[in-house]
Deep mutational scan, measured.
Amino acid sequence: ETFPLDVLVNTAAEDLPRGVDPSRKENFLSDEDFKAVFGMTRSAFANLPLWKQQNLKKEKGLF
């Protein structure tokens, strides 16, 4: 299941849709939104070091 970017960005855990893991908001973006937000594919993002993934998520309001 995916959700629009505005539902996930800068949203407190208690305000997220049911079933969304607040530590993994990026997994609930569509592939198109994911690429638009991070400028890379999911596989490229997954290959980044964890610290870099976290920094990007913070920068984009998805942490």
Rank of each mutant, 00 (worst) to 15 (best):
N47R: 13
Q54Y: 14
G61A: 02
D15C: 15
S23A: 14
S23F: 13
L29T: 01
F45V: 00
F63L: 15
W51A: 09
T41E: 12
L16I: 06
P4G: 07
F63D: 15
A12R: 14
L5H: 05
F28G: 04
T11A: 12
P22R: 06
Q54A: 12
E26M: 03
E32L: 10
D21C: 09
N55A: 15
F38A: 00
V20P: 05
L62V: 05
E59F: 07
L50I: 12
E14I: 11
N55P: 00
K60D: 01
V7K: 11
N27T: 09
F28L: 07
L62G: 04
F34H: 00
L50H: 12
V7C: 13
L16E: 05
L62F: 11
S43P: 08
D31V: 06
A12C: 14
N27P: 03
L62P: 03
P17L: 05
Q53N: 00
Q53A: 03
F3Q: 06
M40E: 00
L48M: 11
E14H: 11
P49W: 01
L8P: 03
A12H: 10
A13H: 11
S23D: 14
N47D: 13
G61W: 03
M40D: 00
L29Q: 01
K58V: 11
K58F: 10
Q54F: 12
K52P: 00
D33N: 04
F38P: 00
S43G: 11
S30K: 05
K25A: 08
D21Q: 06
L8E: 03
L29R: 01
L56G: 00
L56A: 04
N47H: 12
R42L: 04
V7H: 07
E26P: 03
P17I: 03
R42A: 03
L62W: 09
R18C: 15
M40I: 07
R18L: 15
E1P: 14
K35V: 14
S43H: 14
K57S: 02
T2V: 11
E1M: 15
K25N: 03
R18D: 14
F38I: 01
N55Q: 15
A13N: 15
F28C: 07
Q53G: 00
L16Y: 14
V9I: 14
R18S: 15
N27W: 11
V20G: 04
A36W: 12
E1Y: 13
A46P: 00
L5S: 04
S23M: 15
L50M: 12
K57G: 01
A13Y: 11
A13M: 12
G39Q: 11
P17F: 02
P4S: 07
K60P: 01
A36Q: 15
W51P: 07
P49Q: 02
T2R: 08
T2D: 03
L29I: 08
F38E: 00
R24T: 07
Q54I: 15
N47W: 08
K57M: 07
L5N: 03
A44K: 09
S30L: 02
A36V: 12
N47T: 12
D15L: 15
R42F: 04
V7L: 15
S43Q: 14
E1F: 14
V9A: 10
P17G: 05
M40L: 06
L29M: 07
V37Y: 04
A36R: 12
L48Y: 03
V20R: 04
D31W: 03
P17R: 03
L5K: 06
P22E: 07
K25W: 04
R24G: 07
N10H: 11
F3D: 04
G19K: 08
N10V: 08
S43R: 12
L29D: 01
F45Y: 05
A46H: 11
L50E: 11
G39Y: 04
L5R: 05
M40C: 06
A44D: 12
G19N: 10
D21G: 02
G39N: 14
D31H: 07
A44Q: 13
E59Q: 11
L48P: 00
Q53E: 00
V37I: 11
N27H: 12
K25C: 08
L50F: 12
R24W: 08
V9S: 07
D15P: 05
L48V: 01
K35A: 14
N55K: 14
P22V: 07
K52C: 13
A44W: 06
F38Y: 02
G19P: 05
R18I: 15
R42H: 03
R42I: 02
T11Q: 08
E1A: 13
T41M: 08
S30P: 02
W51R: 08
F63W: 14
R24D: 04
P4I: 04
